[in-house]
């Protein structure tokens, strides 16, 4: 980073480069100042998550429309593997056939969607932001391309799962039954335990939801950050003197390749974990204490 710092006067410093890349394109046009501000919308997160969602859905729809009970083609076989895999997980976790009709497709959607959103990380970190800056004519335009590296994106999904949990809690146990459970589980049915039970349940819901969203966000945010640092190392090639330049360049290639390959695992694993936890949490909502 020190080397990059010696860049020409108009080039951004390493710190500026990273901060710029981590700033969302939102409706205000500049970085959001307060931690929570519900008047702002991150346009880039919305755009890329919707785009990835539509891409995944239309890929699956395209295959599903041509599906045959006879000998399947490669695309159909791939989709069938994916669907059977999700269906098996859903079958083992959620015991209500009625609920599975929605929850199993939801698991598939979540898996494919998150996998595609995470995969945006494989694009070179400067590619889409540069295109965006060129298209808008504004060299300082912000753009983040990984929707799952935005806390709004991941918490949005984990809160959706929380809403589903609440919905199924009420649907399966009835509103009264669920409220009863909130005050009598997990410690037991005793007036003295009502408050601890309720607090415990609230903490459980909060912890589940926050950790669910934060886990995905943290992994993808860290991955994105590392890609930026690797890009910075390569970028220092042009400003360094002597033998360090080529070494940095080779370092960029090696580190970038290694991290991208490792990131394939993370991308897939995080999508899988998010799906599995969504199924597990919804499955828990079906069970009475």
């Amino acid at each position: 980073m020190a080397i990059a710092h010696e860049a020409a006067a108009n080039a951004p410093s390493a710190g500026e480069y990273v901060v710029h890349h981590l700033t969302q394109l939102n409706t205000t046009g500049h970085a959001q100042t307060s931690i929570v501000d519900f008047s702002v919308i991150n346009l880039d997160t919305i755009f890329f998550s919707v785009a990835m969602g539509l891409l995944g859905l239309f890929l699956m729809l395209w295959v599903a429309r041509r599906v045959t009970a006879g000998v399947p083609g490669r695309g159909q076989a791939a989709l069938e593997i994916l669907i059977e895999f999700v269906a098996n997980q859903a079958n083992s976790i959620i015991h209500s056939k009625e609920s599975r009709r929605f929850v199993a497709p939801l698991g598939l959607t979540v898996f494919v969607w998150i996998f595609l959103m995470n995969s945006m990380d494989f694009l070179p970190v400067d590619l889409l932001p540069s295109v965006w800056q060129w298209a808008t004519g504004n060299p300082h335009a912000f753009l983040r391309v990984v929707p799952t590296a935005d806390l709004n994106g991941t918490l949005g999904m984990s809160i959706s799962v929380l809403l589903l949990c609440i919905w199924y809690n009420i649907k399966i146990k009835g509103l009264g039954g669920w409220l009863h459970e909130l005050f009598t589980a997990p410690f037991g049915n005793h007036p003295l335990l009502y408050l601890p039970n309720f607090l415990m349940q609230m903490i459980e819901f909060l912890a589940k939801t926050v950790s669910h969203g934060m886990r995905l966000f943290g992994n993808m945010y860290a991955g994105e950050l590392l890609f930026m640092l690797i890009a910075l190392m390569g970028a220092a090639y042009g400003t360094s003197v002597g033998a360090t330049g080529p070494v940095l360049w080779i370092g960029h290639v090696i580190a970038g390749t290694a991290w991208a390959i490792f990131h394939i695992l993370i991308v897939l694993l995080q999508a899988f974990i998010f799906m599995m936890l969504a199924l597990v949490y919804i499955g828990q909502a079906h069970e009475s204490h």
């Binding site: 959001q32 919308i41 998550s49 969607w113 709004n152 994106g153 918490l155 999904m157 809160i159």
Partner: peptide, 28 residues
Amino acid sequence: NLNATLFAQIAVFFILAWFTMKFVWPPV
């Protein structure tokens, strides 16, 4: 930072899941 993107994402989440349930899952 948290902002209204959260709610948009929730809406997108349910729309996508509904779409899959309706058009992708049953034929396969």
